[in-house]
């Protein structure tokens, strides 16, 4: 399996053991996770550059186990071009934006360069979404950058937004629905597959922000076919990775 929405490090307002890349690899070995696509938690917090550096360190230590998203901050829009070039040369693939922690709108002008870059390179761009407004905005932005892969982080987060997300994403082929979330609503995977099939649903866990095991059990325990589970847990992420320039 592949975790397409994972992190690295600690978070400021709650405790957990570990969170460093060694503790992550240990648990990945235990559960048979091929690799995790990560951004550092400090990167979506106060220091995106340090975050990207931490991800690079993890990628260097375990090249087969970690893929890196380049985290960008809307408050340093002028530095996006250099940061993206630098990190692309280091092997990063994809962009991570967190409008929630940065308190910045998805369609804000300071994100435009990131969208343009992802569009030119067929990169995935993982955007945290929470609430109906985020869902609607991401869909509209995705329509303007059709070569980029828009991963709708948490698919809107709360249950009503998640239901809206699948309806709106149905006819927008470059939008993928991300299963990451603490709630893991019973029945939502079946609901998604019934409406848009299994090709645009991505497995993610927020690991180590949240333990990855419950999310795996959720997918494995859902009432969909084994082939559909495999698409969600692995094939879709592989396809995105292989199509990136």
């Amino acid at each position: 399996m592949i975790d397409a929405h994972a992190h690295l490090g600690k978070w400021y307002n709650f405790y957990y053991d570990g969170g460093d890349f060694l503790s992550m690899v240990k648990i990945m070995d235990r559960i048979g996770m091929e690799f995790a696509w990560i951004s550092a938690l400090i990167g979506i917090g106060p220091d995106y550059e340090l975050g990207n550096e931490m991800v690079f360190e993890a990628m260097n230590a375990f090249p087969d186990r970690f893929k890196g998203y380049v985290t960008l901050s809307p408050y340093f829009a002028g530095k996006m071009e250099d940061e993206l070039k630098k990190r692309a040369s280091q092997g990063f693939i994809g962009i991570k934006l967190h409008p929630g922690t940065h308190l910045y709108p998805i369609d804000g002008v300071n994100y435009l360069y990131a969208y343009k870059y992802a569009d030119e390179h067929r990169w995935p761009i993982l955007i945290h979404t929470w609430g109906e407004r985020d869902v609607r905005t991401l869909i509209e932005v995705a329509k303007s950058y059709q070569n980029a892969i828009f991963i709708m982080g948490h698919s809107g987060g709360d249950l009503k937004s998640m239901l809206l997300a699948v309806d709106l994403a149905k006819n927008v082929d470059n939008v993928y629905l991300d299963l990451t979330g603490s709630a893991m609503y019973n029945g939502i995977i079946e609901y998604y597959v019934e409406r848009i099939g299994s090709d645009r649903i991505l497995f993610g866990t927020d690991f180590p922000f949240i333990d990855p095991r419950p999310a795996i059990g959720w997918v494995k325990g859902s009432k969909i076919s084994e082939g559909e589970k495999l698409n969600i847990l692995k094939n879709n992420a592989k396809r995105i990775l292989n199509s990136a320039k």
């Binding site: 235990r30 893991m184 959720w218 325990g221």
Partner: peptide, 18 residues
């Protein structure tokens, strides 16, 4: 936490615990 959650979640967590 049925019906809100899938039992597979906690079961997998327990089964794969170290």
């Amino acid at each position: 936490n049925l019906p809100y959650k899938n039992p597979g979640s906690t079961i997998f967590y327990i089964e794969k615990a170290d």
